Amino acid sequence: MYYDLNIPYAADNLGELKQTLAFLAELGYNTVALNHTISGKVPENITNQIPSPLPFSTPPSLHILRRCTVHLSDPAQNHRLNNISSAYDIVALRPTTEKCLQQACLGFECDLISLDLSTRFPFYFKHTTLAVALERGIKFEICYGAGILNSDGGASRRNLISNATQLIRVTRGRGIVVSSEAKRALACRGPADVINMAMLWGLGQERGGEAIGREARSAIVQAEMKRRSHGGVVDVMYGGEKPERPAQADKVAKAKQGKGKRKAEVLESQVADGYVSPKPISKREQKRQAKKARLEHTNKQEGEAESTWKDRPAPEASAPPEPLANGDGG
């Protein structure tokens, strides 16, 4: 699955947004995050500015998320950042100064740190600072849309390549998410093109695929865990409720159960009649049964012979010869 976690949402340009989402679906993306930007002080009452559902039809294969990006220029004015996560699916910070970047990495609760790499930074990225954010599970986002459009004569493209190379070198390629930040469909690129672009910045092919796949999914899952659980520890996935089954499903289940019973009865009758062997007989059992049959046959023959001898009639005794009369034969 491929992810694009930064598509700017503009209520006055819904026609272009609809074309962009349709084009992303054709390119092969599965999940897209619509982005609302807050500049300056975070309002007290935070409401989601992205309607759900959207006022136009979206491709059925595309999963839409809602994201909020806060521009950090003065950390003292952004003490309500923790309340944003309850209204949006993803919370991202875009620091503009080195002090804001340090505080975003060390203390602020967010899911992404999205740096505007198309501008020139007056400071260098430090591994010790960014490593703390990586240990907290925060991802760093690289947006390539400004470098694709290149509306300022090539300066944004040069800055994007230089800053992205430096960020990948400092983070050692870990925790990088690549998004488009495309305001028009013309700035979108397919997953294979994004991987090739990341390879030019110094990110390997495997890490480039993870930047629009596994790493982006990890940011979404962690953001959901923060909303649904306490400290990311306890999450009730299923409370044991038994779902209600429609009447038609019950009829089908009973019919299958009755069919299974009839099939079992037929099988038992076949086994009893000798048509089906319920269990294969081993060689040892075959020898034992053959020996038992021989013994029974022998015993039967001996019994028949003995009964025949007993039932045989006794021979009749012959009468003794009569004595000869006197004078006979004289």
Rank of each mutant, 00 (worst) to 15 (best):
F140E: 00
F140K: 00
F140G: 00
E141Y: 04
E141P: 01
I142H: 02
C143K: 01
Y144T: 01
Y144W: 06
Y144E: 01
G145H: 05
G145D: 06
A146K: 04
A146S: 12
G147A: 12
G147V: 01
G147C: 02
I148A: 02
I148P: 00
L149S: 13
L149N: 11
L149C: 11
L149Q: 12
L149W: 03
N150M: 05
N150Y: 04
S151R: 12
S151W: 08
D152L: 07
D152T: 01
D152Q: 05
G153H: 08
G153S: 04
G153N: 06
G153R: 06
G154E: 07
G154L: 07
G154N: 10
A155F: 11
S156R: 15
R157Y: 04
R157L: 12
R157F: 01
R157K: 11
R158N: 14
R158P: 02
R158K: 14
N159E: 12
N159R: 03
N159A: 07
N159C: 06
L160V: 04
L160D: 06
I161D: 06
I161H: 05
I161T: 11
I161W: 04
I161M: 09
S162P: 00
S162N: 07
S162D: 03
N163W: 13
N163P: 12
N163T: 14
N163M: 11
A164W: 13
A164R: 12
A164H: 11
A164N: 14
A164Q: 11
T165W: 07
T165P: 03
Q166G: 03
Q166W: 03
Q166R: 13
Q166V: 01
L167H: 03
I168K: 04
I168V: 13
I168M: 06
R169W: 08
R169S: 14
R169L: 09
R169M: 07
V170T: 15
V170I: 15
V170P: 11
T171E: 14
T171M: 14
R172H: 10
R172P: 00
R172Q: 12
R172T: 03
G173P: 05
G173R: 06
G173D: 05
R174E: 11
R174T: 05
R174C: 05
R174K: 11
R174G: 03
G175L: 09
G175V: 04
I176Q: 08
I176C: 08
V177I: 13
V177E: 05
V177D: 07
V177K: 06
V178F: 15
V178W: 12
V178H: 13
V178P: 04
V178M: 15
V178Y: 11
V178R: 08
S179A: 15
S179M: 09
S179N: 09
S179T: 14
S180I: 13
E181S: 13
E181F: 08
E181Y: 10
E181D: 15
A182Y: 00
A182L: 00
A182H: 00
A182V: 00
K183G: 15
R184K: 14
R184M: 10
R184Y: 10
A185G: 03
A185V: 09
A185T: 06
L186I: 12
L186V: 13
L186R: 13
L186S: 15
A187P: 05
A187V: 08
A187E: 15
A187S: 13
A187C: 10
A187N: 12
A187G: 09
C188R: 01
C188F: 08
C188E: 05
